[in-house]
Every structure is written in structure tokens, then in C-alpha cells.
Simulated assay, not measured.
Amino acid sequence: MGYDFTLDDVDYLRSGDGVAALAETAESELSTRTRLADIGRARTRFGDRAGLLIETVLLRRKAEAKLDGGAAWLLTDDAVQQATPSLVARRRSVRLTGRRVHDVTCSIGAELSALVPVADTVIGSDLDPVRLAMAAHNVPGAVLVRADALRPCTRDTVVIADPARRSGGKRTHDPAALMPPLPDLLDVYAGRDLAVKCAPGLDFDALDWDGEVEIVSLDGGVREACLWSPGLAGTGVRRRASVLRSDGSAWEITDAEPDDIPEREPGEWIVDPDGAVVRAGLVRHYAARHGLWQLDPRIAYLTGDRVPDGVRGFRILSQLKYTEKALRQELSARDCGSAEILVRGLDVDPDALRRRLKLRGATPLSVVLTRIGRTPVAFVCAARD
């Protein structure tokens, strides 16, 4: 649990004395090695304010890589953990350019910050007065009001919501256990233009959502799903995967694209699609776009004679029916000393298997374990960087 901020704390941090104290505290290393000495020095200088100042400096350092301008924000630990990365928020804001937007769970303002430069009007509301005060500092261009997300207080706005998935550091994937509950949100704003950020692991088919589900990844990690109501969805699109990189590059694919792919024997390469493509159920669409096909129609691994740009591929050296003995012999014959092991479709623990293989060679290799039909198969590969 992080520091429990109060409105008085926020007022102090926004004051001239607080700004100066934060700047001085930020000069401390605050590493494991220096933490005790740094805390002692802060207590000597700032008394009871030391914990508040140290927590804010540490949270800013954590937020700096995630939030534009995070090094100057006011934050709480839970808010930083749940905050939308600025790259993702800016991507979402493109659809809302020129609109009047109301973020009904605005927290410390991560979404508001991306919306203010492009939207006609930006309104943020939250029940937590401390987070609202922080949002006022972080995003001065937004209109802020204290309100319950389940009690609409604006009209003719696009509503954005981000139900809390964490409480006390614990994450939930139950839609009814979110705060506010996802089913209640969808009921309250039925018929409105609505975008709801939620966990990518939710069962979206069970929600019976009639709009678009967008799965977003950032630098290879699946970050979130966004439910777009029909008025905001792409034409003819029910599923979308958006793949973002910190260097600013991005691409997307939707279920409006073709998904016809051939059935063939494995090609020269195995391709592991981005997690957003897999979670969005667009593996076949991605394969069709790039001239690939599946190793097995029920498994997300793809294969082909080329690797799409920007994607990691595994060049197949050998294919064998998988047993530990057969794999150990094949790796030994190839002088393998270390193996990256990827598994889909088989009940195999890669770390436990690696220990049992007891590899002693000099060559690093990759192993892809999967199932083709009912047959467990091992592909020994050279990984492409």
C-alpha cells in the first residue's frame, strides 16, 4: 500500500514551499543503498512532510516512462499503476478529435491530458476528491467536477470510462467486480457514444457487446482492451488489434480484412504474432495480410517463407514428434547450451523442462513446442533477432 494522500497534502505540494521541497528531495538518490540515509535527511529538513515528499518523488520517477510530463505530476500509487500510458491515450484520442468528451472516471488525468489538445471540450469527473485535486494540477485545461460515474451529469458528450481493476494492489478480471461495475456502466450509458477501457483478458463474447472491441499492445505487451460503442466503432469492424511502439510507430488490423489462408506443411519460419492480434482473434487475418498460414487451425503460431517486418521469427532447423528424450537428443546433437522455449497447445512448463534437459553445449537455440492435430511437435529453431 502506498502513502495515503489527503487534500491538505495536495495543497502543500502545489504551494511554493511544496514545489521547493519536492525539488530538493528529488536530488536524493533514494536507492536501496541510500534509502535510510535519504529518509533521515528528509526528516531532518521537512519533519512530518518527509514521507509525503519521498513518496511523490518515487511515484514521479515511476510515472516518467509512462506518462508525458509525469515527472511533474501529482500521483498516487494505485493511480500510476492503472493510468493509461500516454502513447495509448493519444492513440484513443484521435477518434475523439473535435468532440465534447467526458471522462467519468478521470482519476489523476491520464486520459484528460491526451484529450485536451484535440477535443472540443474535455470534462473529467471522479468521486475521489484527492485524485480530482491532483488532476487539476496535472491537466489545467480540463473542466473537473466531483461526481459518481453511474449518475450522468453531462449531455451530448462522448463518455469515456476506466473502471478500476485494482484494489489494494490486487487485480480482478470479473466485470461485475470492477469499480464501477462494467455491466452497470453499460446500462447507465446505453445509447450514448461510449468508450470503456478494460482488461484484455475479459470474455468479450459473454458481454454481448454490439460495438467494437479494440485490443492494444505497447512494445510487445498487451496493455488493455477498449470497448467502442457502435457510433464510435469502425465501419464493419467488431474486432481490432492496435500494435504500438515507444518509437512512435504503430499498425492495426481488423476483422473487416480477409482471413482466407492456405493449409500447408510448415514453411521456413515460425512467426509468433503480437499478443494484441492473438487476444483480438485476428490471427488468420494477420496471416492473410502477410502471406502466412497456421501450423494448426487451433493454435496461434503462424508459419511461412518470410517474416513480416518488425516481427520476431524463428527459422526452423528441425521438426520432430515431441518427447523429452527425443528433444534432448536433438539439442545435444546440435551442441545446444541454452534454449529459449515457447509453448502453445501443450501442458509443458518451459522453465521446468529446461532444467530437466540439462543442456551443456555452446550453441543457443530456440524451441517451439506445440500440437499439430493430436500430435505434440517440437521445432528446433535459430531465433532471428
Rank of each mutant, 00 (worst) to 15 (best):
G211F: 08
V377C: 00
D296N: 08
V271T: 12
C198T: 09
L327G: 03
L282K: 07
S107N: 06
G373W: 00
G51M: 09
R166G: 10
R238N: 13
L365P: 09
R334G: 05
S229Q: 10
V311W: 06
R166C: 11
H102K: 06
C106Q: 01
Q319M: 12
R92W: 01
A206G: 09
A382V: 15
V188F: 08
A63F: 07
D193A: 14
P183F: 04
D48Q: 07
L202G: 04
L282E: 09
I123G: 06
K325I: 10
Y301K: 09
P129I: 07
D103F: 04
W269Q: 08
D203W: 04
Q81S: 14
I215K: 00
I108D: 03
Q329P: 01
G220Y: 12
E214P: 02
V19H: 12
T323G: 10
L227Q: 10
V139R: 02
V278A: 02
Y12L: 14
A195K: 00
A63Q: 05
G220P: 06
A71E: 14
P364G: 07
S113M: 11
L74C: 04
D309I: 03
D274P: 05
Q329T: 07
E214M: 05
D8R: 10
R245G: 07
P163S: 07
T363N: 05
